[in-house]
Amino acid sequence: MSRLIIEASTPLCLLQDAGRFGMRHLGVTQGGALDWVSMRWANWLLGNAVDAPVVEITLGGFSLIAEQDACLALAGADLDARLDGQPLTPWRSFMMRKGQRLRFNQPLSGARAYLAAPAGFVAPLVLGSCACVVREGLGGLDGFGTPLVEGEYLTYTGVAPGLREVSVQQRPDLRSNAPLDMVLGAQIGSFSGQSLFDAFNAAWVLDRRADRMGIRLLGPALQYQGEPMISEGIPLGAVQVPPDGQPIVLLNDRQTIGGYPRLGALTPLALARLAQCVPGNVVTFRPVLQVQAYEQQVAFLRQFESMPVARCGAGQP
């Protein structure tokens, strides 16, 4: 067993995996890494299962010291990570020698970094997942939804393969301003014509009211003209429009059912990009058919299956 001691943390540094499934009929939310693409890459770098437990570090303020030589992997945002003061860029696995300090200072590009360890960090499965959902008191290192705190140990048991990196072509572009794809939902026809035009043409600004439940967007007020809705299941990425007309994109820690009308739901790939945006960033939406989104998603998932599997090698600590 190898250990890392947490020297500094914030309430936004959480243990995550792909999330909790098959529990939403009990009112239990999904949880899981917001930028699931970066989580996958971090795990891929170490030859892990793509959804092995990782640390989601939002905005920085996280610091670790290695108790043994360690081979870890970093993907997602560039949070000005430093290994004993030397800059460490994401999208690669790296050696951390005994006693070295890994520190995440501040967001330089993107919002969320994912740190992986060989075979994943060790954490109890609660209702099938270690995803830390603070509001529900589920998951995390203690199993009770507590964020990572100073003085705790992160442990892992795996052995790393050789050092590797994600090729430049395969890295998600965290600064991309391409529109976010949205699968249109059933209430789309009940918004005013002007609102539909605005929804897909306006520049939407990320509000400061943003967390793992949802991100509010500021822009023209959208008008729903349909009947009031009865609460129903909320899919990941639902773009709901409350009475003030300012849309909210619902994320992994959203409530399981709700009664606000929805424009549709962002695709998983669009959500991974949105998870790397910070308040004040601007996004736009593009409508896509469910079948297009399906083909895009399946092609992306298959890519991980077809890539060569990592083998233990030179980087082994």
Partner: peptide, 13 residues
Amino acid sequence: RLVDLVPSYTTLM
């Protein structure tokens, strides 16, 4: 093949 089934008052997602 079922990931989640979310029942509510009048719907099943």
